[in-house]
Design a protein around this nucleic acid. Sequence first.
RNA 1: GCCCUCGUGGUGAAAUUGGUAGACACAAAGGACUUAAAAUCCUUGCCCUUUUGGGAGUGCCAGUUCGAGUCUGGCCGAGGGCACCA
Length: 846
Amino acid sequence: MERYNFKIIEKKWQKFWEENKTYKTKVDKNKKKFYCLEMFPYPSGKIHMGHVRNYTIGDVLSRYKNLKGFNVLHPMGWDSFGMPAENAAKQNNQDPKVWTENNIKTMKTQLKQLGLSIDWDREISTCSEEYYKHQQKFFIEMFNKGLVYKKENYVNWDPVDETVLANEQVIDGKGWRSGAVVERKKLSQWFFNISKFADDLQNELEKLKEWPNKVKVMQQNWIGKSFGCEIDFKILGNPDIKSVKCFTTRPDTLFGFSFLALSVDHPLSELYKNDPKFNKFKDNCSKTGTTEESIANAEKIGFKTNLQAINPLDENKIVPVYFANFVLMDYGFGAVFGCPAHDQRDFDFAKKYKLEIKTVVKPLDQKDGYEVSLEAYTGPGTIINSDFLNNLKVPDESVIETIKILQKKKLGKKKINFRLKDWGVSRQRYWGCPIPIIYDEQGNYRTAPEESLPIKLPENINLNTKGNPLSSIEEWKKIKINGKDYYRETDTLDTFVDSSWYYLRFCSPKNLEEPFDLNDINYWMPVDQYIGGVEHAILHLLYSRFFMRAIGYQNKNFTFKEPFKGLFTQGMVCHETYKDNKNNWRSPDEIITKDGKNYFLKSDNSERIKVGPSESMSKSKKNTIDPERIIELYGADAVRFFILSDSPPEKDIQWSEQGMLASYKFIQKLFLLNDKVQNLIKLEKQNESDELSKYINQYLNKIERNLSNFQYNVIIANIHEAHAFIMKVIKEEKNFSNLINEYSKFLISVAPILPHFANECLSLLNIKDYSWPKIDEKFLIEENVSIVVQLNGKKRGIIITKKDIAEEELVKEIFKSKTFDKFLKDNTIKKKFYVKNRLINFLIEQ
RNA sequence: GCCCUCGUGGUGAAAUUGGUAGACACAAAGGACUUAAAAUCCUUGCCCUUUUGGGAGUGCCAGUUCGAGUCUGGCCGAGGGCACCA
């Protein structure tokens, strides 16, 4: 018998699918739709194992839904604007467009080698003019709706290259190319008003039943809705300053007020701009890192002003005003009222500057006279030491009541605050979608006139210039309208804008006039299953949700509001890391081991290699495995099989060459089985094997259940078991009359995972058109069940008996059986617990 | 520091959601086949027992229950998220 030659067979089927347009999207109105989308890749050069995992998971689902009779939309495209193209251009003097297009070509070939059921006729690329021209129209539409505005914002500025740097381009506070110390610089930039939808984005989250909870919690924290009030604090010490506004979620602790703290960027800082001590303090504040983690334990420092604030609930109470490093200008009003006893940061601050720490909340389990001592108390309790607020229950009653009182006295008002900031979309880069804005000579801006659209990126330009390349191309910048000179905006859009609506474009990819047909998107949207990495849990997914609200929902008659009905976030692909004795990273291809314990360098057997922990594959640690090489060695089906086998898809998976090899060998075994069946069915037909039908139907039942739960690793185990079972059945060397029928069901069941192999085997059986097999319910009914027999909760054996047996009858059978005789005969049974068809537990006297 | 998730053999993991713990696979050891190797197949897998059997056992400690990997409380550990968020 011939071995299964994946090289020939996989190519043959890929050619067949391409020529027959097998995976072209079809719409049959009698069928339901299913939109399966995986996050589209950035065309960085070659595909990596993460792509293989992501797209295999999606492909299994698409193929399954297809076989189940859905109209499936399963497209693919390229998130092709972005920095790597521009970096490559600068380093290797390549045109970003050419570089990107070459990468797309390579990666498309690689994806095809994986045997994905993608409708390539719908391919889109965000860097193409046909794509980004629509995006410019969206920008204008949003501008006209008041969802776009310009604001000053801080950026990382490289003074040598005169360019803005992304966070990842700043290494140890220095520019990645120039090595210059990065400065904080204010630039005027474009913003999308995402915070306008903050409340809706938050409220709709809970309706996303098919999203992982983890992602919803992350978005919830990001949006950060909080309920509280704004309070005006009267200020003494400067006749020009009347009051300062604060936001607080804890107005109920106002009687514990002992200082007022301002952000160093607060407007009042203007008063101190010529004070060298204040400026030194401000510098100190900027030295503390900007991440929450680095600041959490950082020392709380302050700058005492000559101002004082009056407690609105007790005018005799006057406290000092500080600038403090833990107050943010972006949130609330850049000012907080300090209540040290019930906020840890305020507590730390008060300790340092010896300010009053007055306890105003008593925990429920504490006696009278309770005082906060070692740390702030932030939990529930009752209000104390607070005059007319005393005895209110914290927090439900106290916060609401205090707000009511403040409102009555006109000292403050109820307010809901959000953490979510507006989305800065300006990028000072070449390789992105040009922003359709023009400026007159006075610097006044307006949207670019309709007839000047689309604004195309200039080609063949020199990228090795200082600053944003677009701003140095005078002829591109200039535009004349009605004889008047205007200048184009030279910022381009954040690439997250590109990916915020691409899933709509897939519904009508060929429409030249409009970004989509309303009919198409109302048919296909929302995406039924979106699959991608958890690293996009916040930004990409939140921006996409925002886009639906900004462009569509209100006035475009969309029949949906949320873009992604189901979301699945897959884990990463990991591999051990290797270092040589000079502490350089080494790639797995350079390493050899004979015993699995001691590792050496292939090129130099004497050099021992240190094996590090398994980490997600990355070029910098050299622990990557090239999918192309693996497909070449083992075939696409084997890679697909392995990448699903070892771990549940949502968890990280460990790459294992042995595991990969085992998957390859298993396919060879399946082919051997196929060969045997092929020979058997040529024999004269025998009676039916009931056992076989029963097994296959129960197996299909399990597969469907596991498919719907994304338990693909368990499906792989089910397939192994089914293979072993069928092998056992055919050992009898009989052509059971149901053999070909049941066996072909098995082949169809593996088709979503092993499409080349399954199609080849099915065509050898002359099966060309097939759909997902219907489960025959009668085989799911068991006549016999095995019931666990327990004594005092301990398993003493199993009894096989007929299904739905009555308790009395079962007990009789157990007493008849010799196995249980020794346990039961000398004991009195106090009680019995019978779980139908599962288990019986006898409680006996000890 | 705050929020979330997770702790099951040498390893990756299953467990019909409170009812046979360790399916399936990798690795290891032993065996069969072979002149030999590779490949393939079988067996084993903690403790006591020659076997039959029995016992312990799902991070640790308690609790609920006839029965807990699964539920509750506390502790320990690992991973992830975080924009100084008032």
